[in-house]
C-alpha cells in the first residue's frame, strides 16, 4: 500500500514484524513501518473481528493498536521503531491480560 522513498543514505533498524525480520528506517513509527511493509491490516476488532489498519496516524483514533514487544493495545502510530522490536498484529483485545 505504501513505500519508503529512497532519500540517499539509508539508516535502518531491524524489527520483527509478524514474525518476519524487516529493515525499516530509524525513527519512524511502528504504524509507518507496518504500512510500508505490505501489512494490509494491523488488528481485528474485539467487537466483530473486523480487520482494521491505522487511520489517523496522529494518536486520536486508536485504530492502530498492535502488540509491541508482547504488550497489547500499543498505539502503533505513537510508538517508534527500535532495533530488535517485536511487532505483531493484535487479534481482538490481544494479550492484554497475559503479561501481568
Amino acid at each position: 500500500m505504501f513505500k519508503q522513498l529512497s532519500e540517499g543514505q539509508a539508516d535502518n533498524v531491524e524489527i520483527i514484524l509478524n514474525g518476519q525480520s524487516v529493515l525499516v528506517s530509524r525513527g519512524i513509527s511502528v504504524a509507518a513501518a507496518a504500512l510500508s511493509h505490505q501489512q494490509r491490516f494491523t488488528r481485528t476488532t474485539p467487537v466483530s473481528d473486523s480487520k482494521r489498519a491505522p487511520f489517523c496516524m496522529m494518536g486520536v483514533c486508536y485504530d492502530c493498536l498492535m502488540v509491541i514487544d508482547g504488550k497489547a493495545n500499543q498505539q502503533a502510530c505513537a510508538t517508534y521503531v527500535q532495533q530488535g522490536m517485536r511487532v505483531d498484529n493484535q487479534q481482538g483485545v490481544g494479550p492484554a491480560m497475559e503479561n501481568g
Partner: peptide
C-alpha cells in the same frame, strides 16, 4: 485491583 488480579496490570 492489581493486587487481587495481577493479570490486569496492562489493562487500560
Amino acid at each position: 485491583v492489581i493486587s487481587f488480579f495481577p493479570q490486569l496490570k496492562q489493562v487500560r
